[in-house]
Write a protein that binds this DNA or RNA. Structure first.
Lengths: 230, 230
DNA sequence: TTTAAAACCTGATAAAAATCATATTTTATT
DNA sequence: AATAAAATATGATTTTTATCAGGTTTTAAA
């Protein structure tokens, strides 16, 4: 569903990559971009496909995932409003190395390749910002590799819950509710969903989380941090 | 041990980040940099320390690793001649997120922070190249997360051997010899060294590798690729 | 060259986690 | 509100892999 969102009115434009654009360029961007509403569970782009531009998240949450063995999905990270999607493929001139799927109703703007490069070339701040973002993502990814290699599932799940706590807190609501299926949680942690369910009950027993249906409430961040060993 | 290597004579300068520099700047770089010889096993920099510049590998191989649980080391990647080390910390203005340790005798040049930024600012090609490199590293890292999450040790070891085959082939010698301790191999794959040893014997039985002391010879790349499922 | 210290190898055992099976609850749909 | 479908939960079992313990070989150093 095509919708219209003016960049100057966009709640994320100040914190996003385009925060440094002058009003004129921002207005121009608004006219050039297209903006869509995606229902929860819809695919924004598929791994392996050729990129034609980048996506800027206006609202909602999006899981970035890779297909592994026998189609099993690995969630690499969760993107939130202000994040750009498809940056790497565009920079490296390669096909998408992962898929983007909404995990809640989301609004995402699309900026085509040429327009994006035209803008970034005139704003070196954007390039710098991209480099910094990539650096940070790489640090996080390497940290995750280390966790996957060395930590047992219980610790990794605690780690994931803390990450999700930040992700789901980002919209500013005071008491954070994580709304993610056990399957998705398992695909973040790298385990079976039965194992996630069992460990979640353990955490519940230890009063570190509360569970209401699909929803997970973080009650004891410090406790989880202790379990995760961070 | 301080040694003197002229950038124009450096065998990697053409393929390195500084390949685009004009002769004058390259000469200037030579005067500003310092160049050291490191024995196998020496530390170039430590995780957590503040960066003061970047390192450019002239010769040798260097493991990039993070400290995990109880000091257990996780090898994130292996850097080869032409690679820059410490880039991310410099860009992001953070401390080193990992350590760099030589796995064979190496020669590494050091360029201080200011000099590096002075140069890169005048050569946008370098910024672009950095972005492309970071993008690729991130793709590789995410692929590794997926492997760690979904593949059993046997498959991951096959994968690691194929990666090492490329790394150790890079100097141009025809028949590749991987010279890496079982411990290091285990720290790449994310397993115990006993498991590596056992699986290596299996691969030997199946005529996919040959082992002579510490040295590993890859005999059947296709076979390993089949095992690794790539 | 001898000796010490690492690194490597092998087997037995234990722990962690996956898989399978099946029941129950929640959510979505008519 | 009733029904179907999907997701969640729990137990039993098996597989994978780590850990421990003991050897042997290789490497490094006196």
């Amino acid at each position: 569903m095509l919708i219209d969102i003016k960049c100057t009115d966009c709640p994320v434009h100040k914190i996003s990559y385009f925060g440094c654009l002058d009003p004129c360029d921002l207005n121009d961007l608004w006219h050039k971009k297209t903006c869509y509403f995606y229902k929860k569970g819809q695919v924004i782009f598929y791994e392996g496909k050729q990129p034609v531009g980048i996506y800027c998240i206006n609202s909602g949450k999006i899981k970035i995932c890779k297909l592994g063995q026998e189609g099993k999905e690995q969630i690499v990270r969760i993107a939130i409003p202000g994040d750009l999607l498809g940056l790497r493929s565009l920079i490296g001139g390669r096909n998408y190395s992962n898929s983007a799927i909404t995990i809640e109703d989301s609004v995402v703007c699309f900026i085509n390749k040429r327009k994006f490069f035209q803008t970034t070339i005139r704003y070196p701040e954007i390039s710098t910002r991209i480099m910094i973002t990539l650096s940070k993502l790489l640090d996080v990814a390497e940290q995750k590799i280390t966790s996957m290699a060395q930590k047992p599932v219980r610790e990794r799940l605690a780690e994931a819950l803390l990450t999700l706590n930040d992700v789901f807190h980002s919209d500013g609501c005071p008491n954070t509710v994580i709304s993610l299926s056990r399957e998705d949680l398992a695909n973040m942690v790298g385990t079976a969903n039965e194992t996630v369910i069992r460990l979640l009950s353990e955490f519940k027993e230890e009063n570190m989380v509360a569970v209401k249906g699909r929803k997970i409430f973080i009650l004891d961040k410090l406790g989880l941090r202790r379990v995760a060993k961070i």
